[in-house]
Simulated assay, not measured.
Amino acid sequence: MHDTARHFLFWNRPMLTLVIGDKHLSSWSLRPWILLRHLDLPFREVALQLDTPQFASAIRQYSASGRVPALIDGDTHVWDSLAIMEYLHEKSGARAWPADPAQRAHARSISAEMHSDFSALREHWPMQAASILPNVALPPAGLKDVARIDELWQDCRRRYAARGPWLFGDYSAADAMYAPVVLRFHTYGATLSDAATAYVTQVLGDAALGEWIAGARDELSR
């Protein structure tokens, strides 16, 4: 195909649309949003305010599940953060997960664990992206969740630190899956190992996450 034709097709294809909830609160919305930023995939953002009378009817236009996030690509609708990430992996030319099969399996495993577990952490330390609340105690189950996440991060950094500063060296969907956890640990002041603390610092310095936090602050100021 001629370069001009490729350029025309790229710029005239339908833009992805990501439907999200409040940036201050919606941890699941953050995950595909920040991955899209790191993959440099252009998208249109539709923000719906959670816990309002209008939300239930508005989200049904985009997602039959009635939940955010939802990704729309032409006639294709994808819901659930992990499913969206898998779609973006294909959409980006297989750039969302590590290229090596064993590392990719590892990244998917820790991401699936994040997707399905750590309920005590979620309940007692909900994401509040623009707040600092260091005196909210965790029950034993929540402390166990923190310890397990710390263990996962230490293991990744031990294996892949030579490849780069992210969990698997280069940024991947696994980092996107744990970005809301970093915000939780920052908000509530989690006690972590040196390796996990260094990873938190790395994530908090990410420009894309900074953009999200700025959006959360803007929400709170309205």
Rank of each mutant, 00 (worst) to 15 (best):
His124Pro: 07
His38Pro: 08
Asp3Thr: 13
Phe10Ala: 04
Leu25Val: 14
Thr76Ile: 13
Leu183Gln: 09
Val46Lys: 15
Arg13His: 15
Val19Phe: 13
Lys144His: 12
Pro69His: 00
Lys91Thr: 12
Trp11Met: 07
Pro69Trp: 01
Met177Asn: 04
Ala47Ser: 13
Leu121Gly: 04
Ile84Trp: 02
Ala173Val: 06
Val19Trp: 06
His38Leu: 06
Thr201Ile: 08
Pro140Lys: 09
Asp206Tyr: 12
Leu183Ile: 02
Leu192Met: 09
Ala129Asn: 04
His115Ala: 01
Phe55Pro: 04
Ala179Tyr: 15
Val182His: 01
His89Asp: 15
Thr52Cys: 05
Asp218Val: 14
Asp175Gln: 07
Ala102Tyr: 11
His77Phe: 05
Leu71Tyr: 05
Trp212Arg: 02
Arg31Met: 09
Pro126Ile: 10
Phe118Ile: 01
Gly169Met: 05
Leu121Glu: 00
His124Tyr: 15
His2Glu: 05
Gly205Ser: 10
Ala137Phe: 06
His124Lys: 13
Arg6Gln: 08
Ile213Ala: 01
Tyr188Trp: 10
Ala94Pro: 04
Ser27Glu: 13
Asp3Pro: 12
Trp33Met: 04
Ala129Gly: 08
Gln128Cys: 15
Leu25Asp: 11
Tyr178Ser: 08
Thr4Phe: 06
Ile149Thr: 09
Arg31Gly: 00
Leu39Ala: 08
Glu219Pro: 03
His186Gln: 12
Tyr171Ala: 02
Val182Arg: 05
Gly74Asn: 11
Lys23Asn: 11
Gly215Lys: 06
Val203Thr: 02
Arg122Glu: 14
Met1Tyr: 13
Asp145Pro: 01
Tyr62Ser: 10
Pro139Trp: 00
Leu192Gln: 03
Leu30Pro: 08
Asn135Arg: 14
Gly66Lys: 10
Arg122Asp: 15
Trp28His: 02
Trp79Pro: 00
Ala99His: 06
